[in-house]
Design a protein around this nucleic acid. Structure first.
Length: 316
DNA sequence: AATCATGGCTCAT
DNA sequence: GCCATGATT
């Protein structure tokens, strides 16, 4: 779910841009967002694993976007999700359950001959499997497009790559649909990029420095911003009842210190607040700050542990 | 006024 | 994942 209501809250800090402004630069792509969009054009074919070309139409969509970037001399770096992070398991299970329910319903409608109802349900059942991702990886290889499979969340990997110099494999911006990127502290994120290259950009430095935009983040730093995001409710920790993005912003901008915010919160909401919220809060902030990532140069996950999954190399 | 819960949409014909 | 909307607090 990303950070609840964050993008709407940040609206005044969004600037419409064309992706060509990144000509000559390395730009990270959250593979999941384009895979998911592309899968809508062939959701039934994917769900039923049908024969024929159309099943692969999502690849055409993805490569169209890639070619758009290359046309503007942008160097794309595609980042895939790896395994699921344990604290996100309940969110993930719920999604899986709903997709399966929609798929079963779609099959029924299809048997009844109700094609329109079926295809609508197949769209809701759409899910990106390792197989669909692997089809794409093969094409990226053959086209010499750089890609990385993150050990866990692509968001974390994209944030890490954003912190590196281009010479060390770094990127200068991220294309995604996920507001979590802002909580991770990405310097520049482009949301809602369409097929012509138009998108909506949020640049961290501009957010912190802007004197004219309301809400103002002039007294914020990266930690306070991440804290605000966690307070508002994220995938790792639900918010305290009654606290949304607006209250989270007010608290952080008033007290300018996360420990102080927690004290006040404990005082005001002690009835509805879990006993261990402070601990869980600090852990969630730490997840955003010290995300598990795959370091292409060291060829090892930086936080080695539970490496049941394959470590993937980059193609460079 | 802000949060919460729900339902519709992402492609492309 | 996002967004809009109406009920709920």
């Amino acid at each position: 779910m990303g950070i609840k209501d964050l993008l709407r809250f940040m609206k005044p800090h969004i600037e419409p841009i064309h992706i060509k402004k990144y000509a000559g630069k390395r730009v990270g792509i959250d593979a999941y967002s384009w895979l998911h969009k592309g899968a809508y054009s062939c959701s039934m074919e994917l769900s039923l694993n049908m024969e024929g070309e159309k099943k692969f139409q999502y690849l055409n969509y993805f490569m169209h976007q890639i070619n758009l970037l290359r046309h503007h001399k942008i160097i794309p770096v595609v980042v895939f999700d790896g395994g699921n992070i344990p604290c996100k398991a309940t969110t993930e299970n719920e999604r899986h359950r709903r997709r399966k329910a929609n798929r079963d319903l779609a099959m029924e409608k299809l048997k009844e001959g109700n094609f329109n109802a079926a295809s609508e349900l197949f769209q809701r059942a759409v899910s990106i499997t390792p197989s669909t991702a692997h089809q794409l990886i093969q094409i990226l290889r053959s086209e010499n497009i750089e890609f990385v499979v993150s050990p866990y969340e692509a968001d974390a990997q994209l944030a890490y790559l954003s912190s590196l110099e281009a010479e060390k494999g770094g990127i200068v911006a991220v294309i995604s649909e996920d507001s979590d990127l802002l909580a991770y502290g990405c310097p520049a994120v482009v949301f809602k990029m369409d097929r012509y290259g138009n998108g909506e950009e949020i640049v961290q430095n501009k957010v912190f420095e802007s004197a004219s935009c309301v809400p103002s983040f002039q007294c914020f730093d990266k930690e306070l911003f991440t804290g605000m995001c966690v307070l508002a409710g994220c995938d790792f920790l639900p918010s305290v009842p009654g606290i949304g993005i607006t209250k989270a912003y007010s608290l952080v901008s008033k007290y300018r210190n996360l420990d102080r915010v927690l004290s006040i919160l404990k005082f005001e909401k002690h009835n509805q607040m879990p006993e261990d919220y402070s601990k869980l809060f600090r852990e969630a902030v730490a997840v955003f700050q010290h995300a598990r990532i795959y370091d292409a140069d060291s060829k090892m996950p930086q936080t080695p542990k539970t490496s049941s999954r394959k470590a993937f190399a980059v193609s460079r």
